[in-house]
Simulated scan of single mutants.
Amino acid sequence: MRILVTGATGFVGRNVVGGLLRAGVSVRALTRDPAAARLPGAAEVAGGDLTEPGSLAPALEGVDRMYLFPVEETAEEVIRLARGAGVRRIVDLSAASVTAGLHTNPVERAVEESGAEWTHVRPCGFMANMLQIWAPSVRAERVVRYPFADEPMNLIHEADIADVAVAALLEDGHHGRAYTLTGPRTITVREQVRAIGEALGEEVRYEEVTRERARELMRAQGGFAAESADLMLGFVEYGGERPSSEDGYADQDWSALMRVWPDVEKVTGHPPRDFARWAGDHADDFR
């Protein structure tokens, strides 16, 4: 068995690679820059870009299962090439917002129509997103500036997403399933900041700011923070539409994303990791 992991250097992808290697299977890890991948030596690192499907032929050779990072624009062609190369099982990374009916995912549809065995992995918000929006200010000032102090959020550890994906890649019985993945409970921003401080062993202050100020701060950071600011702060809905309410989010029903879903434990046999565990795992990233 040889499994191709696309998006192998991302938060989830790295954990998928590690989980598969621990299971003793052959792993080929796809990345745009193999020289900078910093993946375990047992992984075969292959160059390729999901936005350029023609670059994937060498990486697909001899592969029979694939973890698919979603790139909507090229998904159909990537999946067609994979099937032509002999890939018979595809596990794709999707989102819990699809379960909630907030939008549809064309990658899911393409996977289902491919004729491959398929499993959709639909996580809620990534705990790891906080590394990309809060870590700079925590490292520099030991402070988080953000709105929504006491509103509950449903977040998941990237390792739990990977554990479910690994199980679906290796085990039978997951074909045709869509797993909605959440943490063990909802958690507020104030509680998250407190947990980061406890992981560091020192105080991290929380400063409530408006959505507008938070957007300014996130845009100034660039990268993921800038790209995701409007969605995370409610200035746009899933699908890119602007909400009619000034408060944001009002036009969509988020109740399904506030539920604690049982799928992590159902698939893996262990309960999902909580935010305190995640903060401890990433304490050095905030330090």
Rank of each mutant, 00 (worst) to 15 (best):
M1F: 05
T9N: 08
G10W: 02
V12P: 00
N15R: 15
V17W: 04
V17S: 05
G18Q: 13
L20S: 03
L21W: 07
L21F: 09
L21E: 07
R22K: 14
R22C: 00
A23N: 09
G24M: 02
V25W: 08
S26F: 02
R28F: 03
T31G: 12
A37E: 11
A37Q: 09
R38I: 00
R38P: 00
R38G: 12
L39H: 03
P40L: 02
P40S: 04
A43I: 04
G54T: 04
S55W: 04
P58E: 15
A59V: 03
E61H: 10
V63N: 04
M66P: 05
E73Y: 01
I79M: 08
R83I: 11
G84K: 13
G86M: 09
V87C: 06
I90H: 10
V91D: 12
S94D: 09
S94T: 11
G101P: 01
G101D: 03
L102A: 10
V107Q: 07
E112C: 06
E112K: 14
E112V: 15
E113A: 15
W118K: 08
W118Q: 02
W118R: 05
W118F: 10
W118H: 11
P123Q: 08
G125C: 07
A128Y: 07
M130G: 05
L131D: 03
Q132H: 11
I133Y: 04
S137K: 03
S137H: 09
A140Q: 13
V144K: 08
R145P: 05
D150S: 12
E151F: 15
N154K: 11
N154T: 13
L155D: 05
H157S: 06
H157P: 00
E158I: 01
I161R: 05
D163C: 02
A165F: 02
V166H: 05
V166M: 03
L170N: 07
D172T: 10
H175A: 11
G176R: 03
G176M: 04
R177N: 04
A178C: 08
Y179F: 13
Y179L: 04
Y179C: 06
Y179M: 03
Y179T: 01
L181R: 09
R185S: 15
T186I: 00
V189N: 12
R190S: 15
R190N: 14
R190C: 05
G201Y: 10
E202A: 12
E203H: 12
E216D: 11
M218E: 01
M218K: 01
Q221R: 12
G222W: 13
G223Q: 04
E227M: 11
S228R: 14
L231I: 15
M232R: 06
L233S: 08
G234C: 09
G234E: 14
F235A: 08
E237D: 15
E237H: 10
Y238H: 15
G240C: 09
P243R: 10
S245L: 01
E246M: 10
E246G: 15
D247H: 14
Y249A: 14
D251H: 10
D253Y: 15
D253K: 11
W254M: 14
A256F: 14
L257F: 04
V260P: 00
V260Y: 13
W261K: 01
H270A: 14
A279M: 04
D281F: 02
A283C: 11
D284Y: 06
F286M: 09
